[in-house]
């Protein structure tokens, strides 16, 4: 059986809010290492990969592999019944029909309990190759969100070019064009504001801004985001979560015919 207790319901709320625009139904794969999720969007353009390691929970107990097939709209409805600061416990039997969610207030004696019916989801898992990316950019997640939002006002696509000069996000649209260039930057007062660019060779790729802007819904999960790029492979957008857990988005590039 599964029993996984999260100190703050907020973490799961935010994770689900971040992916619900991309994915409708998905399996939460539980085993002794934690709770993982991998799902493509309907258009097969983007892939979400989440890992909540067992260390992110206390306690965490899951003695065999359990796949919880959950409709994310249903999960969102139930998670709205939790206060952000509530302690959340997920429970399921070994071959479950439902997943049980218990929300406890640390301050009062309130205890809420919900069951969500599970679905059989025949989900294909993709093998994500280990990639040595040509460029990695770590930057404030709010900054990435702002750039994405600003350029989306002008265009559907963004070109991301990374050179030793810095990283340039640029777009061309009907009303004109725009670009934002960031250079490596160390903020002495607040390292959350740092921009670090790790480059082994120049990269230039084009991506859909609609997808990037969806990924940016995860900005509330982490003050930092890491973009990893290599020519002609999907972009990796990664938000680090507590206890070495993560929420990753992969986005296939747009490539010239």
């Amino acid at each position: 059986m599964l029993e996984a207790r999260l100190e703050q319901a907020n973490l799961l709320k935010k994770v689900v809010d971040s992916i619900t625009n991309l994915v409708q139904d998905c399996n939460f794969d539980c085993n002794d290492s934690g709770i993982a999720l991998q799902a493509m969007d309907n258009s097969h353009v983007a892939l979400v990969a989440m890992m909540l390691r067992s260390d992110a929970f206390s306690p965490f107990r899951c003695d065999r592999n359990i796949a919880l097939g959950i409709n994310l709209t249903s999960l969102t409805k139930v998670l709205r019944c939790a206060q952000n600061e509530d302690i959340l416990t997920l429970k399921a039997e070994d071959a479950p029909d439902v997943v049980n969610l218990v929300f406890e207030s640390a301050e009062s004696d309130r205890l809420s309990e919900y069951d969500i019916k599970l679905m059989d989801i025949d989900q294909e898992h993709l093998g994500i190759p280990d990639t040595e990316y040509a460029a990695s950019i770590t930057m404030p997640s709010a900054e990435f969100q702002r750039i994405t939002r600003d350029l989306l006002a002008l265009s559907e696509s963004v070109s991301i070019e990374c050179t030793k000069e810095g990283v340039k996000f640029s777009c061309q649209g009907d009303i004109g064009s725009g670009s934002v260039t960031l250079r490596s930057h160390t903020n002495v007062d607040n390292e959350d504001r740092n921009v670090s660019i790790d480059l082994s060779e120049p990269v230039s790729l084009m991506f859909s801004l609609k997808y990037l802007s969806n990924f940016c819904k995860a900005s509330g999960l982490s003050s930092r985001v890491k973009l990893s790029l290599s020519n002609e492979v999907p972009l990796l957008v990664e938000y680090a979560l507590p206890s070495n857990s993560f929420l990753r988005f992969y986005l296939a590039p747009k490539i010239g015919d």
Binding site: H44, E124, L126, A252, K254
Partner: peptide
């Protein structure tokens, strides 16, 4: 002219 690629073109089904 650019075309949106599918993620399946890069990551194989297991």
């Amino acid at each position: 002219k650019t075309q949106q690629r599918s993620i399946l073109g890069f990551f194989a089904k297991k």
